Amino acid sequence: MTAGLHAERVSWSAGGALILDGVALAPRPGTVTGLLGPNGSGKSTLLRVLAGVLAPDTGVVTLDGVPLADVPRRTVARRVAVVEQQADTQVELTVADVVRLGRIPHRRAWTPASTADEAAVRSALERSGLADKAHRLWHTLSGGERQRAQIARALAQEPRELLLDEPTNHLDIQHQLELLDLITGLGLTSVVALHDLNLAAAYCAQVVVVRRGRVVAAGTPDEVLTEELIADVYGVRARVSVPEPGERPHIRFLGTLARDSREP
């Protein structure tokens, strides 16, 4: 049986437009896979298909070899956690309240939190560095703290797979690095959509590049993030440093390419 969360030749359309076209994705257990591509390439849609929020038109997403559609929703919710780009609420919730939402898949309706639930919440707060902010109101948090709270909520689910949609958006450099340090230190099978290629190169064990809904490259950052691929997919001239053994590549952007010089 194939372990983990896999997509096999997945396609999905909306309004007659093909958004995903035969996508395959097989994250390595316990590592971070970066999902890269220009705006509109299908990254967010692919994450929603992997989470079971959208059903593929063709192909299949499997969890431990079982089609996701055949896995009970509560089981999926316990195994797979999702962190959206942005989250907000008009309700005055504390950070601990937000994190407790991650325990919903483990509880029956209308039952009070158990000792195990509260232990999971405390652990998630500690792992995300928010234990000292448990009683702070959500709306008083900074952007970086809100993202950490969202990850803490996901951790409270006690998942094995974690899907994150551009979690570094709108964060300053320090908070971007702190957030990715947190994600890579979790030891979960994570798929994270990113725009910053240097962050992907620095933090991801493997990367998958999508363009117009199709996978155009997949592998380790030093294999995939070449000057040729960056020019072809992003329309940008770049210089990619050749890493020494054990090091990650670094990308220096030099400017955009003329549109007519790119592959149509």
Rank of each mutant, 00 (worst) to 15 (best):
L171E: 08
T184A: 06
G143E: 09
H175Q: 15
L186G: 04
L177E: 07
P167Y: 01
A109S: 15
H106W: 13
L171A: 04
L177M: 12
E118I: 00
P159G: 01
Q176F: 09
I151S: 08
A201S: 11
E126Y: 06
L182A: 08
A201R: 04
T189K: 00
S128V: 09
N198S: 04
A149L: 08
R136T: 15
D172N: 00
E145R: 06
T189N: 07
G187D: 00
L171H: 07
G187P: 08
L188Q: 09
L186H: 11
L137R: 15
R148N: 09
L182W: 06
H195Q: 05
E178I: 14
G185E: 08
L171S: 07
H195G: 06
L180W: 10
I183K: 02
A124P: 12
R146S: 10
A201Q: 07
D117W: 01
T115V: 15
Q174K: 15
L141I: 01
G185T: 11
E166V: 11
L186M: 05
R146T: 11
A201H: 10
A109T: 13
H175I: 01
T115H: 04
E118K: 11
N198P: 00
A131H: 14
D172I: 12
R146C: 07
P167K: 02
Q176H: 02
A200N: 11
A200S: 10
E161T: 13
T189E: 03
L162E: 07
A134D: 11
S128F: 02
L163E: 09
H170L: 05
D181L: 01
G143M: 01
I104Y: 14
A201Y: 06
R127I: 07
Q176R: 11
D181A: 07
I173E: 03
L163G: 06
R160H: 12
A200V: 09
R122S: 10
N198D: 09
Q150C: 09
L155F: 02
E178Y: 06
Q157H: 00
R108G: 14
D132A: 13
S114K: 09
L177F: 12
E126F: 10
E145T: 14
D132M: 01
A113N: 14
L171I: 07
T111S: 14
S190E: 08
R107S: 04
